[in-house]
């Protein structure tokens, strides 16, 4: 059987088992922010993991879209971690998380305007220069739209990654969540994506809150998101895909089964 390229997010509750049993997983993604501290026990664990699996470093702390200057400590620690584990990809989100030194630790959307495109693309270029490598930028889920936005999210996303000349992390679940929350066709979004820039795909489970869908990463991937993923696989080809599960983290087996399910859809649609 052909091997798929669908991995899982590394969660702390699974680390000991993964180190001991070394299950067959094509690659792992880690939340880089949790492993930045040099000589910490957490980074110590990660170095053991890095000896066994290819890694993708995924962050929330860059605050790419913030009007605050970049956090110097964050970048130097991230650069040092990159040098130590040699990840296949380094990613963060198309959003802002901090302002005036206050950090929300959440992903807050940007207004979709020409001046935001110029500013954010400049910030991504600066981040790439600081890290001396390509970074990969992910679309976030959103629960509101700003009045000042002058274009669709996909026009904004595409313009930013083109102008920044960076990679793109396509979160299929986030597209679906935002499509339902803002009443657009997720396929319009998908078809507008610059396929050649897609470096990775994310899948996750949302929560239906009645008035809106919330991206909680606390459940199985839903049927409509699997359908959208099949479309994405057809469009972008055999791109590394990842299951994100952060809240109510299940047993490793369930996570791996979810990755295998993604894998079979991927193989079926990219054959």
């Amino acid at each position: 059987m052909k091997e798929h390229s669908c991995g899982i997010g590394l969660r702390f509750e699974h680390i000991d088992r993964i180190l001991k049993e070394q299950p067959n997983i094509p690659w792992l993604e880690v939340l880089s922010d949790n492993y930045l501290n040099p000589n910490s026990v957490q980074q110590d664990y990660l170095l053991s993991i890095a000896e066994l699996y290819p890694l993708s470093l995924h962050g929330v702390g860059m605050s790419i879209g913030s009007v605050d200057p970049f956090n110097e400590d964050y970048f130097s620690l991230l650069k040092a971690l990159i040098d130590r584990v040699n990840p296949e990809r380094v990613s963060d989100h198309l959003c802002w998380t901090a302002v005036h030194g206050m950090v929300t630790h959440d992903l807050i959307p940007l207004p979709y305007t020409d001046e935001t495109i110029r500013y954010v693309a400049g910030r991504i270029r600066e981040a790439q220069e600081r890290l001396e490598r390509e970074i990969v930028i992910e679309n976030v889920s959103s629960y509101l739209q700003y009045k000042q936005s002058a274009m669709t999210e996909w026009e904004f996303f595409t313009a930013v990654v083109e102008e920044a000349d960076c990679g793109l992390l396509l979160d299929v679940n986030n597209i679906y969540v935002s499509a339902m929350n803002h009443n657009f066709d997720p396929l319009d979004y998908l078809h507008a994506i610059p396929t050649k820039r897609v470096r990775q795909i994310h899948l996750a489970g949302y929560e239906d809150r009645g008035t809106h869908l919330l991206d909680t990463h606390g459940n199985h991937v839903t049927e409509p998101v699997w359908d959208l993923y099949a479309h994405a696989a057809k469009q972008v080809g055999n791109i590394p895909t990842l299951i994100e599960w952060d809240n109510d983290v299940p047993e490793l087996e369930i996570l791996l089964a979810e990755a295998d399910k993604a894998g079979s859809i991927q193989l079926e649609h990219t054959a």
């Binding site: 680390i15 939340l31 949790n34 957490q42 929330v60 990463h217 606390g218 994100e244 809240n247």
Partner: peptide, 17 residues
């Protein structure tokens, strides 16, 4: 059980209800 303790779980990139 250290890794689940002390807030070691740290960041995620998910929203909270």
């Amino acid at each position: 059980a250290e890794m689940n303790d002390c807030g070691a779980n740290g960041h995620a990139c998910a929203g909270m209800a």
